[in-house]
Amino acid sequence: MIDNGTHNVVRLVDVVKVFRMGQQEVRALKGINLAIRSGEYLSIMGPSGSGKSTLFNMIGALDKPTSGRVFIDEVDVSQLDAYELAWLRCRKIGYIFQTFNLIQVMTAMENVTLPMIFAGMSRDEYVEKGMELLQLVGLAERYQHKPPELSGGQQQRVAIARALANDPAIILADEPTGNLDLATGEEIIGLLKRLSAERGVTIISATHDIKMLNVSDRVVWIRDGMVDRIEDREELKITVGEVG
């Protein structure tokens, strides 16, 4: 395996997704080609309804494309059976959602350890690692709290800890700051950036939060189900500068 940190962790080839709503056909994605390099912090920007979330689901192997191919670590996702898909979702990818999606009836600790239980870890291992992860996101003393007893920012931090549980190569974040206030949102972005720098995790984030631009290595602009343009950080500064 090439491990110089520059191979493609995710590659999309001519990905098309059509939703059927009664008589109507909605083409959410109209042929997306995209290669995401290992270790980069990539933001997918675009207005709502542009196909961002659909693209997110494709990258995360949460939905099947109507046509085209999705490769994760150069493995064609459509060729995987249910067991392999579950393994991929469990070990390779960590998911973070706009609505946090913590299991409401479980404590922070139970939420964080769940992916490790699914991965078949022993109790001692997952309890220890769960505590470490909660410490990492600064919520160690709240491990016994359930999501309704935590603030939005705290819930999202638990979700980040959960996403890191099995040391995934990719963290997929769908509007991670969408339900948070400005300061908390910045905190979460900072945490993601730190993770990407310290652990070399590839972070892919669908967003329309401009704050995300400053920390991204690359930004993919989606418009109307197609890749509008891809910008590197250097070019970005100029664009942001112009806007500002």
Partner: peptide
């Protein structure tokens, strides 16, 4: 939503 989340975390059918 809970079921969807469980599947994202690696739950089998």
């Amino acid at each position: 939503r809970e079921i969807g989340t469980l599947k994202c975390l690696g739950a089998l059918d």
